[in-house]
Amino acid sequence: MQFDFEFDFEHWRTLAEEEPARYFAERKALIDRFIASAPASMAPDLMQLQGLIDHSRAEAGTPQIAVQQMMGMLGDYLAALAGQMRELQQHSLALAAIQSRAD
């Protein structure tokens, strides 16, 4: 299933300002639809990530602090991914060396 979404910033801004309860309900429904559109094997990770985001937003106090915290989390995840990629590259090179000796 493909997730089809066009973001109308003004709609969401107005909704958040004028009808906060409806904003949060629609936001949750949108996030739930997005997670449901992903492969089922990804759903637990996506739900966990969304929980971390929601927790950070609630604890931050201001939107600016929340964004800073989320960017820090993103940086941590990217650093971990880069480390895994380097490790895979090292294993790949070692396997290639073994293969070339076998030939």
Score class of each variant (00 low, 15 high):
residue 87 E to A: 10
residue 100 S to H: 06
residue 31 I to L: 10
residue 96 A to V: 09
residue 67 V to L: 10
residue 54 D to L: 11
residue 47 M to A: 01
residue 70 M to N: 13
residue 83 G to R: 02
residue 46 L to E: 02
residue 7 F to T: 05
residue 12 W to D: 11
residue 57 R to N: 05
residue 78 L to T: 12
residue 55 H to A: 06
residue 77 Y to M: 15
residue 36 A to Q: 01
residue 25 A to M: 08
residue 30 L to H: 06
residue 100 S to T: 05
residue 42 M to P: 12
residue 47 M to C: 07
residue 72 G to R: 14
residue 19 E to Y: 06
residue 38 A to Y: 10
residue 40 A to V: 01
residue 61 G to C: 06
residue 97 A to V: 08
residue 10 E to P: 07
residue 77 Y to E: 07
residue 42 M to Y: 11
residue 67 V to T: 07
residue 66 A to E: 08
residue 10 E to M: 00
residue 14 T to C: 09
residue 69 Q to G: 00
residue 58 A to D: 01
residue 46 L to N: 13
residue 38 A to D: 10
residue 19 E to G: 14
residue 20 P to T: 09
residue 29 A to D: 04
residue 84 Q to K: 03
residue 49 L to K: 12
residue 16 A to E: 08
residue 81 L to K: 12
residue 2 Q to I: 08
residue 42 M to T: 02
residue 19 E to C: 02
residue 22 R to D: 03
residue 103 D to I: 07
residue 19 E to H: 14
residue 10 E to T: 04
residue 48 Q to N: 10
residue 11 H to M: 03
residue 9 F to C: 03
residue 20 P to E: 13
residue 1 M to S: 07
residue 88 L to V: 06
residue 83 G to E: 03
residue 102 A to K: 15
residue 57 R to K: 15
residue 21 A to Q: 15
residue 16 A to I: 09
residue 101 R to Y: 02
residue 33 R to Q: 13
residue 41 S to N: 04
residue 14 T to N: 10
residue 50 Q to F: 07
residue 72 G to T: 14
residue 28 K to F: 03
residue 4 D to H: 05
residue 62 T to G: 12
residue 22 R to H: 11
residue 16 A to V: 03
residue 75 G to W: 06
residue 62 T to F: 06
residue 85 M to C: 02
residue 16 A to Q: 13
residue 3 F to C: 03
residue 28 K to S: 08
residue 17 E to S: 12
residue 8 D to E: 00
residue 41 S to W: 04
residue 68 Q to W: 01
residue 37 S to D: 07
residue 90 Q to I: 13
residue 22 R to N: 07
residue 86 R to F: 03
residue 81 L to Q: 12
residue 18 E to N: 13
residue 44 P to Y: 04
residue 79 A to T: 10
residue 85 M to W: 02
residue 61 G to L: 15
residue 12 W to K: 06
residue 55 H to Q: 08
residue 18 E to C: 04
residue 87 E to T: 05
residue 76 D to R: 14
residue 23 Y to R: 05
residue 88 L to I: 13
residue 26 E to I: 02
residue 36 A to T: 00
residue 52 L to P: 01
residue 40 A to H: 01
residue 85 M to A: 08
residue 50 Q to R: 09
residue 53 I to N: 00
residue 30 L to K: 13
residue 29 A to G: 11
residue 4 D to K: 07
residue 9 F to D: 13
residue 90 Q to H: 04
residue 32 D to S: 03
residue 100 S to A: 14
residue 87 E to M: 11
residue 22 R to Y: 06
residue 1 M to A: 08
residue 32 D to H: 01
residue 81 L to V: 03
residue 39 P to R: 06
residue 43 A to G: 12
residue 99 Q to Y: 04
residue 20 P to R: 15
residue 17 E to D: 14
